[in-house]
Amino acid sequence: MNITPLLNLLSRWILFIAVAYKASKTHEKSWVLLGTAFFIDGLNVESYIWAPLGVHVVKGAYDVASKISNFAIAILLIWGALHLKYKKSDFRHVVVMAVFAVTAYLWLFLLAVNAFGGDHFTLKSSFPSLALGGSLVYLGIILRDYAISKHHVEELFPWGLMLLGVLELTYPFTRQVEWYSTMAFFAAAIFRLIAALGALKFVFYPIGGPGSTRVIDIKSGAYLFPDREYARERLGNLMTEPTLVMVTREDPSVLKARLHPDALVFWVTRAREGLINERPTVYAVSPTNIGILVDLIAKAVNRGYRVLCVDAFEYLTVENGFDVAFKFLTTVKDLLMAHGGSVVLMVDPRSMDPRQEKLLEREFKRD
Score class of each variant (00 low, 15 high):
Ser89Leu: 15
Ala147Trp: 01
Leu259Lys: 00
Leu123Glu: 08
Leu238Ala: 10
Phe116Lys: 02
Met1Asp: 11
Leu163Thr: 09
Ala65Glu: 09
Lys67Thr: 15
Asn44Tyr: 01
Pro226Val: 12
Ile17Trp: 07
Val113Gln: 09
Gly160Tyr: 06
Leu167Ser: 14
Gly42Thr: 02
Ala196Tyr: 07
Gly35Lys: 00
Tyr86Thr: 08
Ala188Arg: 11
Leu193Gly: 14
Gly60Ile: 12
His27Gly: 01
Ser11Leu: 08
Ala37Cys: 09
Arg249Ile: 10
Phe186Thr: 15
Glu250His: 13
Ser220Pro: 14
Lys29Pro: 02
Phe191Gly: 05
Pro128Phe: 03
Ala81Trp: 05
Trp159Asn: 09
Trp50His: 10
Pro252Asn: 00
Ile73Glu: 14
Gly134Thr: 10
Arg355Thr: 14
Thr213Asp: 15
Thr26Ile: 13
Ser253Pro: 00
Ala74Trp: 11
Arg249Asp: 13
Thr281His: 05
Gly304Lys: 07
Ser69Cys: 00
Ile14Asn: 08
Trp267Glu: 06
Pro252Lys: 01
Leu82Arg: 15
Glu154Asn: 03
Arg355Cys: 05
Asn320Pro: 10
Ile290Glu: 09
Ala184Cys: 01
Thr317Pro: 02
Ala222Gly: 02
Val310Ile: 14
Met337Val: 11
Arg192Leu: 15
Ala188Asn: 12
Gly165Lys: 08
Met97Tyr: 11
Thr26Asn: 08
Leu110Ile: 02
Val99Gly: 10
Ser47His: 09
Val332Gly: 04
Val301Lys: 07
Trp107Val: 08
Asp367Glu: 12
Gly134His: 14
Asn114Glu: 15
Ala196Trp: 07
Leu108Arg: 04
Val301His: 06
